[in-house]
Design a protein around this nucleic acid. Structure first.
Lengths: 199, 199, 199, 199
DNA sequence: GATGAATGAGCGTTCATTCAT
DNA sequence: AATGAATGAACGCTCATTCAT
C-alpha cells in the first residue's frame, strides 16, 4: 500500500531525506509539541543543519502540514482496502474501527496524534487543505455507519455516533499499551460493542 | 457550589484580579495554545502590565497549573453533589455523563480543553500534583461504573469503558454546538446509550 | 569609639533598623555583589518588605553609599586614636598597617571590601563624596610615611609606597584566614617589613 | 607569542569576530562591570546584533570566562618566555614583576582587571576551570620566590610575599598612569625593592 | 543540496521604585 | 513606618528564517 502510494507520488518515500524528516517530525511534534520542537531539533534528527531544512520545506508549518497530510492519505487508502474485504455492515464498522485504531496506535500513530493535538498550529490555508482530505476519509465512515443504522444495528444518529467514536478511538493513544494484556483486535471489539447492538 | 469553594479558599474568587487572570488564561490557552499565548497577552486581557503577573504567579507555568487545578476541583465537587441526588446505578452514570459534558461544554469548558491539550506544558511536579486531583475525580467515575457492571448494565470492563467514554466526551468540545438542535440532556442520553444496556 | 560617633550623629546606631540595614547590606553586597543583591534581599535580611526600604533611603545606591561612608568615618577615627598612641615613625606606620588590616579583616571587613569592589556602582556625586572622606583618611597615612621617609626608614617615594601598600593590604581579604596559624599582628609585621628598613 | 598561541588554537584570533568580541567584552566588563554590561552593549561594540552573540558563546557567562581564560593563557606563556631569559634569582623576580605589571597595565589590562573584579560572576564550573589555569601561573611565581628565599634575598615566607605582591601589583591599575613621569621599568624596580633585599 | 553566521522580533522574567492604604 | 500590588523598562536568551559561499 505504502509502496504503491509512494510510486504514485502521493506519499514521500520514507527512506528519502524528506521522508525521514516527515517521520522524525511526527515523532518530535508528538513528544514535545510543535511549538517546543525547534527546526534545529528536526534537522539534527536527520543529520543535517537547520538552514538546510528550508530546501525541503518553505517553512516549519509546511512540515507540520506534510505530517498530517501524508498520514490521512495513507490511512484513507488503507481503510478503502479494508472495506473492500468486509461483507456485512457490522464487518465494515469493525474494519473501520480496526483501521482507525491501527492508524492511531501503529506506525502512523505519531502523525495521528499530531493531527489531533497540533491542529491549531496550522495556518488557515493548511487547515482547509487538511479538512478537504479529512472529508474523504470521513465519508467512508459515514457510509458504513448509515448502512449499519438502516440494518438496525445502530440506535442513535450516525453523525452523533461517529463523533462519539472519533473521540473514544483517538483517546486510546493516551492509555492503550501495545504490549499489555489486551490486543488490538479485542480493543476493537470492545469499541464495536459500544457502537452496535451485535447480532 | 462555586461560592462555597471560594469561601473555603479552595478556588480563587473569579472577581478578583487573580481569578480573572485564571479565567482569561483558560480562554487564551484554549484558543491560541499555551506556547502561543504570551504573558503580555494574558496581562492585557485583565488590564495589567506583564510584570504584574508575577505578583500573582511565580511563572507562566503556574498559571497553567492553576487553570487546571481549579477546574478539576470545581468539577469534582459538582460531581459529588450530583451523585448524591442519583438513586439507581444508571442514574449515577447518567449524572456523571451530564456533569462531565457540562464541565466540557459549559463555563469550565476552556479550562477542561486546556487540561487535555496542554498537559505536556506542565512541569513534572505540576503533572504529579494535577494527577493526584485527577485520581479523586476518576474514583467517583470508577465506583459508579463498577456498580453498573455488577447490575449487568455494562458488558465490558469498566476500566476500558471509562477510557472510551473519556475520549468520546472530551471530543464533544470539537463538534457540539451549544445552540444547535440537540440539547445537552439529549447528548448525554446518546452517550449513555453507548455505555449501558438501558432498562 | 563607635558609641561616641553614634552619639555625635556621625554613624548610624547599629541596633536601629537603619543601622542593621547598613550592616546587612555590607554583608550582602560583599557576598553577592551590589548588582546581584536585590532590595528584597536587603529588606528580608532586616525583616521588612521591600517598599519600606525607601522610607530609610531614597534609593538603592544610597544604601551602598552609606555602607562605604560609615566604614571610612569609623576607620578614620580609629586610626587617629591609634596614631595618638604611637611614638616613633616606625610605630606609626605599624599602627596604620594594623588599623587598616583590622578594618579589612575585622568587623568592618564587609564594608571595606564593598568599598573596593563596588566603587563603580556609585554615581558620580557619591564617588566625589566618598573621595572627600577618603582624602582625610589618606592624609593620615601620607603624613606618617613622609615622616618615615625623612627618618630614612623608607627608600622609595612615599606616594608610590602608599599605593603599593594599599593594594597589598586590601588584597588580604582574598586570602588571609582569621583563624589560621598567623595572627593579625604577625601579618602586620610582615607587611611592615616590605615597607620599611627596620632598625 | 600571541601569533603562536593563535595558530595553536589556544587563543582566539583577535581579528576574528569572536576574538574582537572577547576584547570588547574585556573592556566593557572592566569599565561598566559584568552585570551592568548588556549583551546588546557587547554586540553593538563589534557591530552585530544581540542574537548573533549566541552563535559564538552559549551564554553571557561564557564570554566572561573566555576573557579570563585567554588572558591567563597568554600571560602564562609570556612569563615563561621571560623567565627563560632571566639568569639570577633576582632577575627572575624582576622579570615576573615586569610581566605582571605589563599584563595589568598593557594590552591585557582590561582582562586582568576583570579577572580580579568579576570573579563572583563566574559559575562554579568556570571558577574551577580558571582556578586550574591560575595554578599553573602561580607555580611559576612560587618557584622563583622560593629560589630567592633560598638565596636569602627574601626575608618573609614566600607564600605571604606572593600574596602581598599580588595585591600591590593588581592595585596599580587604580593609580598608575601609563604616560606619567614614571615608566613601567621604574615601577617594577620600586615593587622589587619591597620584595627583595637587593644586592 | 548543504552550510552556518547573521538576523531581529519577540519571549519569559526581574527588579528598583511608586503610592494608595 | 510599613504594606504590597502595580509599574514599565530592561534584561538574557531563543529561534524561524535568510543568504553568501
Amino acid at each position: 500500500m505504502l509502496k504503491k502510494l509512494v510510486s504514485e507520488g502521493i506519499i514521500t518515500d520514507p527512506s528519502s531525506a524528506k521522508g525521514r524528516l516527515i517521520q522524525a517530525a511526527a515523532r518530535l511534534f508528538r513528544d514535545k509539541g510543535y511549538e517546543r520542537t525547534t527546526v534545529r531539533d528536526l534537522a539534527a534528527e536527520v543529520g543535517i543543519l537547520s538552514g538546510s531544512l528550508f530546501h525541503h520545506f518553505k517553512n516549519k508549518e509546511r512540515i507540520l502540514r506534510a505530517v498530517m497530510e501524508e498520514a490521512i492519505l495513507l490511512n484513507t487508502e488503507t481503510m478503502r482496502a479494508a472495506l473492500a474485504q468486509a461483507l456485512t455492515p457490522e464487518d465494515k464498522v469493525l474494519a473501520l474501527i480496526k483501521c482507525e485504531l491501527a492508524s492511531i496506535l501503529g506506525d502512523t500513530g505519531a502523525a495521528m496524534t499530531v493531527l489531533v493535538f497540533e491542529w491549531r498550529s496550522l495556518n488557515e490555508d493548511s487547515q482547509q487543505h487538511i479538512l478537504g482530505l479529512r472529508d474523504i476519509y470521513e465519508t467512508l465512515w459515514m457510509d458504513a455507519l448509515k448502512e449499519a443504522k438502516e440494518a438496525n444495528l445502530v440506535v442513535i444518529d450516525p453523525f452523533i455516533l461517529r463523533r462519539l467514536l472519533t473521540g473514544a478511538l483517538s483517546w486510546t493513544v493516551n492509555w492503550y499499551e501495545q504490549d499489555g494484556k489486551m490486543d488490538l483486535d479485542e480493543l476493537a471489539r470492545n469499541a464495536l460493542s459500544l457502537a452496535v447492538k451485535s447480532s
